[in-house]
């Protein structure tokens, strides 16, 4: 089964190479890196941003943009915690938390599709609104009053792998199959590739956009639940840096901001590289705040690279046009 499209293969190879290189270097530099405890810790830690990266990849492939991802992640945790404190049955709280994510996705979709606003502006606005709702719900406090059984999911392992990571991988596989093997996935690529062409080819463009934003909201809400389990609390600042980190990783992974191109595998390899670096920093006693700076630089380099590659390619293509 081809998981990625042929043009992406190179990026996947490069990223796999980069990951192996980082791991080799860290194994050499730090004796604790290649231990079961450390590796599973990295896996657990990358789970929620990995989920956000999946959501962002799908939205970008569909020619959209979503920077409300981190805020939605915080929202689902905040809704879950608040409802639990209010005495709502826990399973119902989970359902409502996930529904809250879908609701934000729906709002994004309405604004983008029906009011024809730019996705960047729309999700920038909803990001701010949702974040304020989170602060209001939590009154700015950290909430730790959650059922033990839920929090203890952190210690569940499936085939020696942490459950949170397994959920990430399962979501990634399902979504990759959705994108690559189903009609729906094809149509997402199609509207990202050229919305107008898709429309005159009979694709219900609006419906697909609705689906994509709602799916993103749902996956981000799920990420919020994973995050709550991981840090055993609901915090108002959850996912504050997520848009930068996630979009960087996704773009490094070969998804473009122009739509119609990208892969979930690439995005996750990008996230993995990021977390390996972060892990390395802490193992080697370096200041982790450097990570954000490095990310910013990488982002510019990656986008720059894309431009450079295009400028090489363009003259050749044009002569044959």
């Amino acid at each position: 089964m081809r998981i990625v499209r042929s043009g992406q293969l190179k990026i996947i190879f490069i990223l796999t190479g980069v990951n192996i290189l980082i791991m080799a270097a860290l194994t050499y530099l730090s004796p604790t890196f290649m231990t079961y405890g450390n590796i599973t810790a990295v896996m657990t830690r990358m789970s929620e941003l990995g989920m956000l990266a999946i959501a962002e990849t799908i939205v970008l492939i569909g020619g959209g943009f979503d920077i409300s991802i981190g805020a939605v992640m915080a929202l689902s945790g905040a809704v879950l915690g608040t409802l639990h404190v209010m005495g709502v049955p826990f399973y119902l709280s989970i359902i409502i938390a996930l529904a809250a994510g879908i609701a934000v996705g729906l709002l994004n979709a309405v604004l983008v599709v029906n009011l024809r606003l730019t996705p960047f502006i729309v999700t920038l606005a909803t990001m701010a609104i949702v974040r304020s709702v989170v602060y209001a719900l939590l009154k700015g406090n950290v909430l730790t009053e959650l059922p033990e059984a839920f929090l203890n999911l952190y210690y569940v392992y499936v085939f020696k792998l942490p459950l949170l990571f397994v959920i990430l991988v399962a979501t990634a596989v399902i979504m990759a199959i959705m994108l690559k093997k189903t009609i729906l996935g094809r149509r997402i690529f199609a509207i990202g590739g050229n919305e107008k062409t898709a429309y005159v080819s009979g694709v219900y463009v609006k419906r697909i956009r609705y689906f994509v934003y709602c799916l993103s909201g749902f996956i981000c809400a799920l990420a919020g639940l994973l995050f709550t389990v991981r840090i055993r609390a609901v915090i108002p600042d959850a996912g504050l840096n997520a848009p930068l980190e996630v979009i960087t990783a996704v773009l490094i992974g070969g998804t473009t901001i122009y739509g119609g191109k990208g892969s979930i595998l690439g995005s996750l390899l990008g996230i993995l590289a990021m977390y390996l670096l972060l892990n390395g920093f802490s193992l080697l006693g370096l200041n982790p705040f450097w990570e954000v700076i490095i990310l910013g630089v990488i982002l510019i380099v990656v986008i720059g690279q894309e431009g450079i590659i295009k400028s090489f390619r363009a003259p050749f293509v044009r002569t044959r046009a």
Binding site: R186, A190, N194, K196, T197, K261
Partner: peptide
């Protein structure tokens, strides 16, 4: 309106 330029021949034709 006719093509999705960055997509493959196959994906364009079968849409």
């Amino acid at each position: 309106e006719g093509l999705m330029l960055e997509l493959s021949v196959r994906e364009n034709m079968s849409l």
